[in-house]
Amino acid sequence: MMITLRKLPLAVAVAAGVMSAQAMAVDFHGYARSGIGWTGSGGEQQCFQTTGAQSKYRLGNECETYAELKLGQEVWKEGDKSFYFDTNVAYSVAQQNDWEATDPAFREANVQGKNLIEWLPGSTIWAGKRFYQRHDVHMIDFYYWDISGPGAGLENIDVGFGKLSLAATRSSEAGGSSSFASNNIYDYTNETANDVFDVRLAQMEINPGGTLELGVDYGRANLRDNYRLVDGASKDGWLFTAEHTQSVLKGFNKFVVQYATDSMTSQGKGLSQGSGVAFDNEKFAYNINNNGHMLRILDHGAISMGDNWDMMYVGMYQDINWDNDNGTKWWTVGIRPMYKWTPIMSTVMEIGYDNVESQRTGDKNNQYKITLAQQWQAGDSIWSRPAIRVFATYAKWDEKWGYDYTGNADNNANFGKAVPADFNGGSFGRGDSDEWTFGAQMEIWW
């Protein structure tokens, strides 16, 4: 008995050590931004985005507190085989008060198993909700290839000249389909599951310092038995992507060409959309029709120009041509140079221009935006974070068209359509004006 009692403290210590080691193995990653800002004409900070554009130049032009908190852990490992559990909870508030209630979004919860298939060394099996191989332009917060959501897949299969990845994910639309009631009355209240099937071939070395990635995505509306879509709904579509990445000037340049059809055009990033119906009456549900095509040509990157200068840049042309004439032509160009006074202090400027032409009206909206920021960051790279910055932003815009969301679809035949700025004596778009804002912001990723 005495021997047992003497061994007990040692056993407890060993158990505590094991539990401590396991606790220390938890990975904590994430992203956050928050700050305070004012508008020159009075009131809180207002942000500037061109009507019809899918993004905006973000430096000194973000008006919310946003965070993603990721917890993950390698829960099992034997040799080169392992299982990893990953989670991500995100939230966004308007940064107007101390207490701002919000419903967090559970954006990731997945398990990734590496090297589980003997004859596919280096590959990963995964299932669950996941940010899946996302491609974006940081300076405009624009995701041009992103099929994230609940799904499953097999990735990084070594095929000799590259890595092959296969995945299936889902994005549902509210009110996407109906069941038959009586007297030809349909009640569009059932969600429609939109499935996306993704095939990618990446890391193909085609020139010194250059790699090529090719991808095909097929999206479709997956209806339940005895349900139907509204007439004209976009049932399926394709997205084709080619991306060349070149190492240059201690950074990279990415050149991207994408072509999409029908349900893959509205978001243009790989998620299927077009079966959703915002109104019970299918007579007024025309606005979900996105049959047509999209072409996107994009070049972006980040480079170092000597010891003291870094720069991000982007140039993009996007043409969404829809059968219902509600598409757009959008082109944007911008730069973000950074001058480093010390390894932790810099001055950053961002200059961006957007131009969006309405397919329906032929009119154009444009905006110039310039931001000057003094910044303190954890390192001497344009990617170094955390960063604390004080900024001043000036924007000038001239908008000739907007979307008509007055009333509702039952009493407005133009609901959701592009109209000229002065349509029917109204005021659509943001008109011709300018404004400036100033404030302070922190940004961090880890």
Rank of each mutant, 00 (worst) to 15 (best):
V216I: 10
V314M: 03
V248I: 08
T192I: 08
D325N: 15
D354A: 10
G274C: 10
G43C: 08
A15T: 01
W330L: 04
D136A: 02
G402C: 00
V256I: 15
A109V: 04
W322C: 09
V12G: 15
I303S: 15
G301C: 15
T102I: 02
F252V: 07
G42D: 02
D236N: 04
A21D: 07
R58H: 08
N287I: 01
S275A: 15
Q22H: 12
R6L: 07
A221T: 09
L229M: 01
M19I: 12
T192P: 13
R336S: 15
G215C: 08
R200C: 01
A302V: 13
V390G: 15
A233T: 11
A67V: 00
K250N: 07
G334D: 00
T261I: 10
A285V: 04
G232D: 14
M294I: 14
A16T: 06
A395T: 02
Q359P: 10
A242V: 04
G37D: 08
V230G: 11
L239V: 05
K283N: 09
T124P: 03
R224C: 05
T328I: 10
D262N: 02
K269R: 01
W309C: 02
T265I: 06
R296H: 04
A181T: 11
E443A: 13
G210D: 11
W322R: 14
I344N: 06
S20F: 06
A278V: 07
I140N: 09
R228H: 03
G270W: 12
F255Y: 00
G334S: 08
M338I: 10
G52D: 00
A23V: 04
A90V: 02
V199M: 05
N287K: 05
A13T: 07
G122D: 00
R220H: 06
G43S: 02
L298I: 00
A221V: 04
R6H: 01
I344F: 09
A32V: 04
G35C: 02
A260T: 01
S234A: 12
D236A: 12
V277I: 09
P9H: 14
D307N: 01
G35S: 08
R224S: 12
W76G: 12
A285D: 06
S384A: 11
L249M: 14
V12I: 07
F252Y: 08
E357K: 03
G52S: 02
A233S: 13
P386Q: 03
F391C: 00
P208T: 08
W331G: 11
Q273H: 11
A32T: 07
A440D: 03
D262A: 14
Q133H: 01
V75G: 10
Q267H: 11
W38L: 12
A21V: 06
L229Q: 08
R228S: 07
S266T: 13
A278T: 07
G251C: 10
A242T: 06
M312I: 03
R296C: 05
A21T: 14
F428C: 13
T39I: 07
V230L: 05
V356I: 04
T265P: 15
G292C: 09
A202V: 06
G268D: 10
N291T: 14
Q318H: 08
V18L: 02
L223S: 10
W99C: 00
R224H: 09
A11E: 12
G219S: 08
S381N: 13
W446G: 15
A16E: 10
D141A: 14
G276D: 07
W397C: 13
V14I: 01
A23T: 04
E282K: 05
G251D: 03
D225Y: 11
R6C: 11
P208Q: 09
A233V: 14
L5P: 11
T51I: 05
G251V: 00
V18I: 04
F240L: 15
G35D: 03
A260D: 00
A11V: 14
A260S: 13
V89M: 06
G268S: 01
A16V: 06
G17S: 11
A152V: 14
T189I: 07
G315C: 10
T342P: 15
A105T: 08
G17D: 05
N207T: 15
V111M: 00
M442I: 13
A94T: 05
F131L: 12
L223M: 14
G30C: 04
H244Y: 11
A193T: 09
R170H: 03
A387T: 12
G72C: 05
T50P: 14
G232V: 03
V230I: 02
K254M: 01
V75M: 09
R58S: 09
G113C: 06
S263L: 13
R6S: 06
K269I: 05
T393N: 00
A193V: 09
S177A: 13
M316I: 04
A13V: 02
D103A: 12
G17C: 12
V257I: 01
Q112H: 03
G268C: 11
G327D: 01
T124I: 03
E443D: 13
I36F: 05
